[in-house]
Design a binder for these strands. Sequence first.
RNA 1: GGCGCUAUCGUCUAGAGGCCUAGGACGGGUGGUUCUCAGCCAUCAAACCGGGGUUCGAAUCCCCGUAGCGCUGCCA
Length: 482
Amino acid sequence: MARVRFAPSPTGHLHVGALRTALFNWLFARHHFGTFVLRIEDTDVARSSEEMSRSILEALRWVGLDWDEGPIYQSQRFEVYRQAARSLVDKGLAYYCFCSPEEIERRRQESQTRGEHWKYDRRCLNLSEEERRSRREQGQPAAIRFLVPEGVTEFEDLVHGPISVENKNLEDFVLLRGDGFPTYHLSVVVDDIDTRITHVIRGDDHISNTPKQILLYRAFGQPVPQFGHLPLILGPDRKKLSKRHGDTSVLNFRDKGYLPLAFFNFMAQLSWSPGPEEKIYTIEEMVREFSLDRISKGSPVFDLNKLEWLNSRLINEMPTAELLSHLRPWLERAGVWTEELMTSRKEWLEKVINLTRSRSRTLADLRAMVVPFLSDSFTYDREAVHKHLLNSELDRWLALLADDFRRLENFSAQEIERVLRERAEREGIKAATLIHALRVLVLGRAVSPGLFEVLELVGREKTLARMEKLEEIRKIEEIKEG
RNA sequence: GGCGCUAUCGUCUAGAGGCCUAGGACGGGUGGUUCUCAGCCAUCAAACCGGGGUUCGAAUCCCCGUAGCGCUGCCA
C-alpha cells in the first residue's frame, strides 16, 4: 500500500514548484490506489501563518487535488519531536550541544577566512557528565545534534537512480534547537515514520538532505522509505523559479482566467511525459498513465506559452454548459450577471459564448468579449474609434443603414449582411467601412467575431441605440461608464 | 571552495546501441480562407554542450572537460 505525502510550509502562497510536487504525489497515490497525506510544516513559528495555510488548501482544491489524511500540523506535535530527539541522545546516537549559533557562526567565518571547509567540530560531543550538568544548571540552552556515523550512505532514487554520499561530507546537524523546537530533518523523519510514508517524492533540492534523513531513519530503527526527486522548475533565466520571476502563486493563475484542467496538464507535463503522443489529458488519463520512470531528469523552464495554448484549446473544445459554469463567477464579478441568464436567456447566452470562445485564451478574455452583449457598461477602444469612426460621411451612411435595419422583418445575420452590402454598394463604398464602424459602435473594439452574427445576438434595439451614439463617442473618444 | 544533480530545436519533450535523413507539440516565418481578430488548412526554418574511449555501429554506454543548477542554517 503506497502512502505519500505533500508537506508545504505555510510561509507564503502555494507556488507553482510546490504545486507540481503535490501533483506528482497525488498522481502517484491515485495511480497506485494509495493514500495521499497532507502535512503542514509550520515548525518555523515566526514565518508561518494560518492565513497562508488556508491559501495553500484553497490552491490545492482549485487544481483538484484532494487528500485522504490530514492536514497534519507539525506545530501541534512539538512534544513528539522533543521526545524523539531525546530518545536518540539516550541511545548515544545524538548529543547535547551548548555552542551558541553566534559562536558557531564566528568559528565558521574564521575557518572560511583561512580557506578551510567548515564542519561542526564536535566540541560538545565529549563533554563530561558534570560539565553538561553544570551548564544546564546555569541555564545554558542546549541543542541536540545528530552524531553522524562513519561510512557511506547510498540510496536508489526513483528518478535519478543510484546516489551515494560519503558520511564524512555530512556534519553533525542539529535535530532540536536550543529553544526546544525541532529542525526540518527531525520533524520530517519523525512524521514520515509516524504516518508510515512509503515513498518520499519531493524536489531535487532535497537530494543532499536525503542521506542525513536516511541516517535518521536507521537511528530510529525504522524502515527507510523510497525516495524520488523531481527536477526543479527554472525561470526563464534558468535559475530556480522564485518570486523574482513574477507572480508564481498558483491562485494567481486562477485569477488570470486559466482553467484548472489546463493548469493541471501544463504542470504535470513539466518533466513528465505520458508518451510520444501530444494531447490534452483528462485527470483520469493522467492517473492511469502516471509513472515515476517517465519523469525526465533535466530541469524544465517555466514558459507560459504552452499553458496559454492549452487554455485556449480547452475553452474552445469544452461543452458549452461546462464553460458557462467556469465563466459565471467572472460575469458575476463584472456585475453583468442576472438570473434570466440561467433560464429564459440561457440559450441566447450560450450562443454568445459559442461565438466568442474561439477568440479567447483565458476566462478574462472571454468575459471582456461577452460583456458588451450583456450590458452597456463597456469602454470604447481609443485607437479603434480613431481608425473607424472619424469619417464625416459616416453619419449619413449610418442613418441610412439604421433605416434599412428598422425595415427588416427578421433581424438575422443573413438579412443584416444583405442590406448592409446593398447599402454599401448603393453608396459606392466598401462594405468593410460600414462593418468596421459598426463593430466599434456596438462592441467598443476593433476585434470581434463576424459582425453579422454579433448584431443578431446583440439585437436590433441595442444595435440601433449604440449606432446613435456616434457623435457622443467621437467627442469623448473614450467613454467609461459603470 | 566542498559535496551532489543535470545537459536533444527558442520552450516542453520523444528517443532506453542500428527503426534517426533525430519525431511530436508550443512559439516563430510564409501562403490560403476573410469585415477585423482568433480559428482552420497548407508550408518553412529550428537541436543531440565539447573531447576522448567501448562497439561493426552511439543522441543512447563509460571517462574527462565545460556549463548550469541545487545543497553547504539552531529555514523548510
